[in-house]
Amino acid sequence: MKRHYFLYLLLAVNGLAQADLNQAEALLKQGQAGEALALVEQELRSDADNLTARFLQARLLVQLERQAEAVAAYEALTRDHPQRPEPYNNLAVLYAAQGKHNKARDALLNAINTHPSYATAYENLGNIYTKMAISAYNKALELDKQQRPAPISLAAIGKIADGPSGPPPVTPLTPPPAHAVGKSTTSIEDEIKLIIDTVNGWSNAWAAQNVDGYLAYYAPEFHPHNGLSRKQWEAQRRQRLRAPRFIRISIREPEVKILGSTTAKLVFEQRYESDRYQDAGKKVLLMEKTNGQWQILREYNA
């Protein structure tokens, strides 16, 4: 039985002619994906960087179960259009279907970096983290069969975008609640409190201009969204934390959303004040739990 995947298809206003697009879609609905692909590739011969046509080409390759070519097509799109989140998201769907969860995670983090409010990527990321937790659990069973932990139910784990052919809607993958992955004595409420406590500690270290303490709240995998390397960003933060005579940070109305067993999203109102500068606005932190500690994985202004 053929497997089809829900993929986010961008339909640009310009590019592929609407008549050709309609014809290709009609062929696809009739089960003639090969003919639809031939039509799209004919358009690409006259306009090789037609973004809409390239997206549709990649989608048709998936429909035809030419997965390696589809991956290559989306990877090329991420190189040629790195500002677009959709190719990264679609790559993650394909990587996850191949069991390459680390690559799927990295692709989704790139999608979030390019478009911080891209909700589909957050939902998919929660599912990927859950799958990674399941893989780690199963590995533990293999390594320690004498003292195996309590069994878990895999039925609650959402599948990677299984659905009918044709142009689908943008449907996020729904991760199970964090408590569905293994047994834990920590409730959702406890995790939310830990996250808020962590962010309060982070803001207190910032206000105290404790640079090393402040930086310790960032995960090793943290990547700045402004294009700086981690080393450049740390140097910039050290200079900015040490320069003012005083810093005041206030956090209001924190809202926590648990995305998976080891990842969460925190949104809050932040006010910054120093002798040099002040501002206020909404901030978003993507948090990751490692070795029992919550750390900041991504940070941006909403």
Rank of each mutant, 00 (worst) to 15 (best):
H179E: 15
Y122H: 10
D162L: 09
Q232T: 05
V170L: 13
P177Q: 03
K139L: 01
L241H: 00
V13P: 07
N90G: 12
Y88R: 02
A72P: 04
K282L: 11
P168N: 09
P151F: 11
E191Y: 06
E35W: 07
Q67V: 15
T262N: 15
I157R: 07
Y88E: 02
A156Y: 09
A264G: 05
L297E: 06
A76C: 01
S184G: 11
V256M: 03
K257D: 08
G281W: 05
Q23Y: 14
G126C: 10
K183R: 14
G126Q: 06
L10I: 13
L109Q: 01
R230S: 00
P175C: 11
I192F: 05
E221H: 03
E253K: 15
L28T: 10
L241E: 06
A12E: 14
K145W: 08
N127Y: 09
A280K: 10
T130Y: 12
G281R: 03
G99M: 04
P172G: 10
I196K: 09
L94Q: 03
L56T: 08
F6R: 05
A264L: 02
A302K: 13
V62M: 01
R245E: 13
A38E: 07
R238G: 04
S165V: 12
A58F: 00
Y8G: 00
A72S: 08
Q83M: 08
L266C: 05
G260R: 01
E142W: 00
T120Q: 08
Q67G: 02
R276W: 01
Q30L: 11
G126T: 00
N113W: 04
L7V: 14
Y129T: 04
T262Q: 15
L9A: 05
P176R: 10
A216F: 04
H115V: 04
T114F: 01
A150M: 11
L39P: 02
T130D: 13
F55K: 09
M132P: 05
D80E: 10
L259E: 03
E43Q: 12
W206I: 10
A178I: 12
L44Y: 12
Y277K: 12
Q32C: 05
D80T: 14
Y217A: 11
V284C: 10
A235D: 15
L259G: 03
I188T: 08
A121V: 06
H115E: 08
L77K: 14
E25T: 02
L125Q: 04
Q239E: 15
L285S: 01
Q270R: 15
A36F: 03
S203W: 01
D197W: 09
A207K: 04
E269R: 11
E86D: 04
G213F: 11
R66Q: 15
T114H: 06
K282W: 09
Y74L: 03
N110M: 03
P82Y: 00
R79V: 11
P168W: 03
I249Y: 04
Q42Y: 09
E41Q: 14
N210K: 13
G163L: 08
A235F: 00
T290M: 09
Q239K: 15
Q57I: 01
G260S: 07
H223N: 10
A205P: 05
F6D: 11
I152D: 04
A68W: 08
N90Q: 03
T130G: 14
Y272G: 09
R148N: 08
H81Y: 14
A96K: 02
Q42N: 01
L228N: 12
